[in-house]
């Protein structure tokens, strides 16, 4: 039974799988992006309160969700790396950090642009906004620490601990709008009594979330190949791939 799982610990197998999958995931993401942006920016009706300006939600919410999803992926794979010493888990974490930081930046930037016309301010030291900014610093600290430690193996363990510890911020970001008085409105979609959004807006939003999700997986698959080649550059399977003429 464990043979099945062990295949996913073997770089040559995962490399080949990633190479076969990544273009299709990329194409699917592009299709969803085109479809979601068309539905969201053209087809969806304006909002009763905010008018047209609310349409930035189709980028803001997927970016914000992904900033938390990618960090969770990073923390889980870091824990797997720490416990089982599975090298590929470290590859996943390393490949996720950069794009996670960009998702966080995108969420903060679109939020700021959205805040100016609706709230009347670019930035407020609100709990939700502040903890999301801390998440951006966490990604940056993760990448900086990894780059700073000369010995790659001990460095990987150090940054894995950092990533695992940082997971505490994720529930804080999510619940900050419920725990504290906040300028940011409470959750629209992830709530017990169902989404508070009309389906003509909700469907494009979910398509955009799918597009972001697939884009992340595409990016992860490509970046993982880079990570595997860097780590295993002296391994036989890499030499064999080079000899057979196709990395």
């Amino acid at each position: 039974m464990f043979k099945w799982i062990h295949k996913f610990g073997s770089p040559p197998y995962v490399y080949a799988l990633s190479k076969a999958l990544s273009p299709w995931v990329g194409i699917a993401s592009l299709i969803l992006f085109a479809f979601g942006l068309y539905l969201g920016l053209v087809k969806a009706p304006p909002d009763y309160e905010q008018g047209e300006v609310y349409r930035i939600i189709f980028v803001h919410v997927p970016a914000a969700w992904m900033s938390m999803f990618v960090y969770t992926m990073m923390a889980i794979s870091s824990a797997v790396f720490l416990i089982w010493r599975m090298k590929l888990a470290d590859v996943v974490a390393e490949a996720s950090a950069g794009i996670g930081a960009w998702f966080t930046f995108l969420a903060l930037a679109t939020g700021s642009i959205w805040g100016r016309p609706t709230w009347g301010t670019w930035w407020e030291w609100d709990a939700r906004l502040t903890f999301e900014l801390i998440l951006l610093f966490q990604y940056m600290a993760y990448m900086a620490l990894r780059a700073a430690i000369e010995h790659k193996q001990s460095g990987a363990r150090a940054v894995a601990i950092l990533a695992v510890v940082g997971i505490v911020n994720i529930p804080i970001i999510h619940f900050s709008v419920e725990w504290f008085n906040s300028l940011h409105q409470p959750a629209t979609i992830t709530r017990a009594d169902g989404p508070k959004m009309h389906s003509s807006m909700l469907i494009p939003l979910f398509i955009m979330v799918g597009a972001f999700q697939l884009y992340y997986f595409h990016h992860l698959l490509v970046k993982m190949r880079v990570g595997m080649l860097t780590r295993d550059r002296r391994a036989r399977w890499v030499a064999e791939r080079v000899d057979s003429g196709g990395l």
Binding site: P45, E49, W119, G120, A187, T188, K196, M197
Partner: peptide, 27 residues
């Protein structure tokens, strides 16, 4: 000295908001 608007978590087309208002069921 400064007033900021806090918008709510409900998103809907204007026609539906109007209908809810009429029915007195606007959150």
């Amino acid at each position: 000295s400064e007033v900021l608007a806090k918008h709510d978590e409900n998103y809907m087309p204007p026609e539906i908001a109007e209908a809810l208002q009429k029915a007195g069921r606007m959150p």
